[in-house]
Design a binder for these strands. Structure first.
Lengths: 223, 223
DNA sequence: AAATACTGACTGAGTGACCAGTTAATTTCT
DNA sequence: AGAAATTAACTGGTCACTCAGTCAGTATTT
């Protein structure tokens, strides 16, 4: 999988660099899958939004399912490299690290992957949420393939800094942490509705300030 | 909305009572929507599983969207009546109640609505999860209509038993609690995978023992 | 010229919705 | 009470439309 030439070794690496149609399709897919879900999204709409003929998508990705996985693969690799880098830097210091920065390392790269692609309003985060919560096989296989390995790293980190935590409880802790994080990524607008505008799930930094202590305290309760 | 005759005042109120086709359609819809999502589900499959002609669904519910809402409405009313009853009983006692039973009241009726309908394996819980996390308008309107009112009750209860909790933090606490609960309802099988079978998200009681202390500790951290 | 990138018209398999007509239940009239 | 009229429940077939995927052919690059 992957593009054949990718404007090989081109001089243009600026943010203004005209991206390849290959990447334009993936960007468009991200937006459309996020808004409409896997079944609801249509190849036609993805093509239109990317400004290419529908046939080109099939030329590059063969099927809708392959396109979906390629889109997940691209962004999740970027995110999980960031998460692994942050976690490694935290864990390789001399003394036992705090829990807080570990939990923050869990979420920050996902948030930043969303806002750098400013236009699409955290589209991938929404795909992540529905993928992670799905009981369907396609989504579970993607979670297993792209997210279980990094999950194991965080679970081990939890156990390392919280010696009282059994492996089972560390796994529960990880799952609960992800569950809390979902409320930040889903962007449902519900917090604002329930609080008459006091809370805003659009501001990730505001949420992290609440989420990190909540989760860390929860994890310590399981230790 | 609602069935017209419903075997009026029939003698049979047993669990073996042959249900109406109207309810059979709603049951089938629950299963199919849970497995395939809104777009992925087809009226034909819902009809087949219910053992009725496809036209009958349109006769009773007019459109797919109306059917979906009717299905959500039926089950969510049942669940939220249970939640309100439990919460009221906790709050009307003399002294300040503990946080723990309140959090448990948040989840138990949902769990029990799932297992009583033994056959469908918590189908509605999965619909709940995807509805609550959706950024799509249809799902958000349903959440607002059927779940925001009871949410406000629990938010008030949080503030009542945790005097240090501001309204904003109580809303966050509610959102995070729901987020954690999702990991129990989604039935992804991921906990088992991540723990080599140590953890099992099929057993709701096992999960509640972990979830309740996690959430309560988290809420106290925001107080 | 050879390979790669790309187009746009096309296909067959569904899709939700619709409807004319049939059967079952309930109400009204005698 | 029993026939007639009315309404509700239900069926099977069909409609217009949309879907993912295909393909012959054209442009672009190497």
């Amino acid at each position: 999988m992957g593009q054949k030439s990718a404007k090989a070794a081109g001089v243009e690496t600026l943010s203004t660099a005209k991206e390849s149609r290959f990447d334009a399709i993936l960007d468009s897919a991200e937006t459309v899958f996020a808004r409409s879900g896997y079944e609801g999204a249509t190849m036609r709409e993805i093509a239109e939004r990317a400004g290419v003929a529908q046939g080109l998508i099939h030329y590059h990705f063969k099927t809708k399912e392959v396109l979906f996985e390629a889109m997940v693969s691209r962004r999740s690799k970027q995110i999980n490299e960031g998460r692994a880098a942050l976690l490694d830097r935290i864990m390789e210091q001399g003394e036992t690290p705090d829990l807080e920065p570990i939990v923050e390392a869990l979420f920050r790269p996902t948030i930043e992957a969303g806002i750098s692609q400013a236009s699409n309003g955290g589209a991938f985060a929404q795909i992540l949420v529905s993928t992670a919560n799905s009981a369907q096989e396609r989504e579970q296989l993607l979670t297993e393939k792209y997210y279980d390995p990094i999950a194991q790293k965080f679970i081990s980190a939890f156990m390392e800094v919280q010696p009282g935590l059994t492996r089972a409880n560390a796994v529960w802790a990880y799952m609960f942490a992800i569950g809390v994080g979902m409320t930040m990524m889903a962007k449902t607008g519900r917090p604002a509705r329930l609080s008459d505008g006091l809370c805003n799930d659009g501001d990730a930094d505001e949420m992290l300030i609440k989420i990190v202590p909540f989760i860390c305290s929860g994890i310590r309760a399981l230790s």
